[in-house]
Design a binder for these strands. Sequence first.
DNA 1: TACCAAACGTA
DNA 2: GTACGTTTGGTAG
Length: 903
Amino acid sequence: MTPQKRLFLIDGMALAYRAHFAFIRNPLLTSDGRHVSAAYGFTKSVLKLIRDEKPEYLAVVFDAKEKTFRHEKYPEYKATREKMPFEMRPQIPWIREIMEAMNIPVFVKSGFEADDVIGTLAVQAQEKGLDTYMVSGDKDFMQLVNDHIFLYSPAVGNKDLVVYTCDEVKKKWDVGPERIVDLLSLMGDSSDNIPGIPGIGEKTAVKLIKKYGSFDLVLEKGQEESNARIRKGIEEHRESGLLSRELVTIKTDVPVELDLDTFQFTGFNEDALRKTLEKMEFYALINELQLGESHEDVEQNYRVLDTRKSLDDFIQKISGEKAFAFDTETDHIDANRANLVGVSLSYQAGQAVYIPLRFLNKENELFDTQDDVVYVLSQLKPLLENDNVLKVGHNIKYDLLVLKKYGVEGKGPLFDTMIAEYLLNPDMTSYKLDHLAQRYLNYKMQSIEELIGDKKSKQITMDKVSLEKAGFYAAEDADITWKLYKILEEKIHKEKLDKIFHDIEIPLVHVLTRMEDNGVYLDVEFLKNMEGEVRDELSKITEKIYDLAGERFNLNSPKQLGYILFEKLKYPVVKKTKTGYSTDVTVLETLKKEYPIAKHLLEYRTLSKLQSTYIETLPKQVNPRTGRVHTSFNQTVAATGRLSSTDPNFQNIPIRTPLGRRIRKAFIAQDKGWKILSADYSQVELRIMAHLSGDERLIQAFLEDADVHARTAALVFGVSEKEITEDMRRKAKVVNFGIMYGAGPFRMSNELDMSRQDAAALIKAYFDTYPGVEKYVENIKKEAAETGMVRTLLGRYRQVPDIRSENRNLRDAAERMAINMPVQGTAADLIKLAMIRVDADMQKKTLKSRMILQVHDELVFETAPDEEDVLCDLVKKDMESAMELDVPLKVDIGIGDSWFEAH
DNA sequence: TACCAAACGTA
DNA sequence: GTACGTTTGGTAG
């Protein structure tokens, strides 16, 4: 007997809801901020269904918008349902679009719910000799199950897939499908607000049905029930039960026609599907479905240059070119620890070469003759150091750093495709090359995991990959980078980002390369001493805490601490996190007046943070080759345009507490007689706010070089500068910063320890004092709403899609971002410009001193004994003149034996 | 092993 | 209220 053909009917809304809530803690967003969790989960599930079941016939059924006969019968029907989450609503049409591209019909029948349509189609399918699978988690469907109709309840969370046959239904409810309606009529359904018979729940309903045989018989004979509650329920709520039965019964006579031709699943409309999925940015799905352009259509003339002759010929050819893309392959992700494995180049779409330097030979031994390396590099060097040739790369700072170790100075004009994409879409979380290839070239790249393995622990390095595979992979990188360059260059221009790109970010690449290469010298001895000191102190505190707690526990575990404080010791709960009790600083600060243990905990927290993040860790980061610590300054992370620093993060070295600040004593110069010089912009963001807003009073304050917080206090509180108290200045400072972050009265009142009304009044007084600032805030919000983006003074932009959201929280958050980004971003542009100037002037004067760190508004240098004065002057002048604003820029400079003294 | 939440360091 | 990165514990896989 040939197996029955199968029809799968998907309960669309149920699946959409499930997908939405599966991602609720971690919603999926597109680059412009659209919620797509439901659409993604939905699509995933449908794909899984197709893959697992290979259905011959398939359709999706949605509820109609209009009210149904159930609402007419019972106005409270589904009245307790929360309305659809706002971020889900726009996804329904997208889901329909995706289904259309998959050639899966979507059914909606006005006046009927999806259940009824599915029921009707299932019955018709049975008549045509098909087996039907109703795809839903809704138990109501069990009433329709028979030998040819099944309920297919997909896996969710830790629950596996269940296909309900008659036996399965019986196993679950102890009664068969034919009694499910009876059961539901008695017990009702709270999610649909179906009353059933009050007082009868699942357990009782099953018992009654088994005892009497059916719902009708329960009504008839229920009066004999010994249990008074049940008897009374049946007597008094008979009507409710009968109504419930009508409501829960799924119709099988909806006027729809099962037309098998349209239900037949024959495969996707690949073109349409790719386009739709691209719109949703479901690149992983596109990959999974292999919807990218097929590789056969793409020209890929990739060659491995494994003889000197072939290399010479290639160099000859490329020498006439004005631009080329290149990529280095190495054996380490950290450029400072990496060995060069090979170099790939491309100057023409579809053409690329790979020059291996380190690879396995036929005997599987590492092959790396020094002669070859020297020869290859000597051939490449003139090319990479040519001031008249454009070098294109993806994250080119990495390649420049690696080449530097081999004596090659990548000089001259650059184009970095990663930075270009970052400027175009500054909010993305990843700018990987394969992602861009998918996005702009609709091309699926060879994944690195295929070469080196996906298990982190078992990964091999590139030099252990066969030459053939490595060659293709590397050549593809160069080829794709070249193709992206052609596209992104155009886009940068179109979006008016040329200035930011060519005058700031690209020149900065060279500066950052030098800074990372310089690294920072640390007084490891000093940190080791500090470590011992702190360790002793920590163990003393630990004992005290154990003593007060009455037991030993893991002090680093907020969970265990929460138990001790709020359950064992029964201290008042101050604040909750989404997983339990909060034990953060504010909580401990509140508790410490009454409960001394909190004071010790605060001390413990501070010390252990310093110990584990800085004191213990920094010495481990010293590079054995250079004896210095080489951080990585990331140019494509912060959406506002700031840099970020990792491995280690040198932009969060403590300064606020005396003990933390001591860590800065470890930041010294390596050579005897050299010093640390620190130069920081004074009040840079407020000055930029003054310029952007054009507020006369604020500008005046800076023109007079006033203490701006004190000045603000005097103006806002209406007193003379002499009458200002410390507290008034403190409050003014909080408001000055709060305004730049877009804070409202609520947050400000917390910070200022005053009522919300008082905070609101203070904000009003602030805006009355600086009307230009208020206007700026209003204007920027308007601009954001009109254009969907905000820009810095130099044109760097950030999209703020949520500015038009219906959701208050999202919209408010977007407004705060919109207010802050031009300020923070312009400050970022400013210091980047300053770095470029300082670096250029240091080169010009061939100073031995080095720029080593940037901390958002501060630059740090190691300075040679005879260069102190000249460097001070140079840095101050370049930083203060980096931008011409309506207010002066002021730079404070300090110099000393360590960062501690310099600051 | 991989990932998240909580906590906390900076401008 | 803005913008980041790291460490730790705890859990899911």
